[in-house]
Computed example of a mutant assay.
Amino acid sequence: MRKVLRLSIIGVLVGTFVGLWLSIFFSGLATAGSFYASLPTSNFTWKMMVTSTLLWALLGAWMSVAQLIFDYVNSLLAATILHAVTLYFPLVAVAWHEHWLSSTSFFAFNLIFVLIYLLIWVSIYHHTKHQLQILNKKLH
């Protein structure tokens, strides 16, 4: 339970930070430099900002805790698929709420999700493999 709490806190902080900077970036692109929270609108409200911040915080916590799947599922393939699905649906919900996802952008969203997920997964896999090789060398 302590691990879940620790991961949740880290996830809330990282999710809020990353979400804020992504919203600033995409809002700036969409509005020629103006910031309108995460929603693509010119009517800024604090309610929108607080809602977006809470969504990013919850998504960050969810993503952090979801990594525990790799600790409890023995098959790497099964754990990866379960982890990807566990991340996908809440991300779709947030993207739909934030108006980043629509029926016309659904294919592109899925393609980007898969590419980013694979890029992160391969990077973590190779990093972990390298760390294990170093550890094995020290043991021999």
Rank of each mutant, 00 (worst) to 15 (best):
L58Q: 06
H130M: 05
G33H: 04
V94W: 09
W21D: 03
L132W: 04
A93V: 07
S23H: 12
R2F: 15
I116P: 03
P90L: 05
G19P: 00
H83E: 01
T31V: 06
V50N: 03
I9L: 09
I69Y: 01
F17G: 14
L82P: 00
I120A: 07
I124D: 07
I116K: 04
F89V: 15
S103Q: 12
E98R: 11
L111F: 15
L87D: 00
V122Y: 14
M63W: 08
I120S: 04
F113T: 07
K137P: 02
F25M: 09
I10A: 08
L39C: 10
L68R: 04
V50E: 06
Y125T: 08
W62R: 00
M48F: 13
S75W: 00
L118D: 05
I112C: 14
Y117E: 06
R2V: 14
M1K: 06
L118G: 03
V18K: 02
P40Y: 04
S105Y: 04
A93L: 07
N110G: 13
W96A: 11
I120Q: 06
H99I: 15
G11H: 09
I134E: 01
W56N: 07
A93T: 05
A32M: 09
G15K: 09
I69Q: 01
V4E: 12
L132R: 04
L118M: 12
V114S: 12
T128H: 13
I120N: 06
A95N: 07
L22P: 01
F113R: 07
T53L: 11
S34F: 12
L115H: 06
W21K: 13
L101Y: 08
W121G: 03
L13I: 13
Q67C: 03
S52C: 08
Q131Y: 03
N43K: 13
S123C: 11
A32N: 10
F70Y: 08
S38Y: 15
L111K: 14
V4L: 10
L135Y: 11
V122L: 14
G15I: 11
I120G: 03
L132K: 05
T31Q: 11
H140I: 02
L59Q: 02
A78M: 04
V73E: 00
M1W: 09
W100R: 12
L82M: 05
F17A: 15
I9A: 08
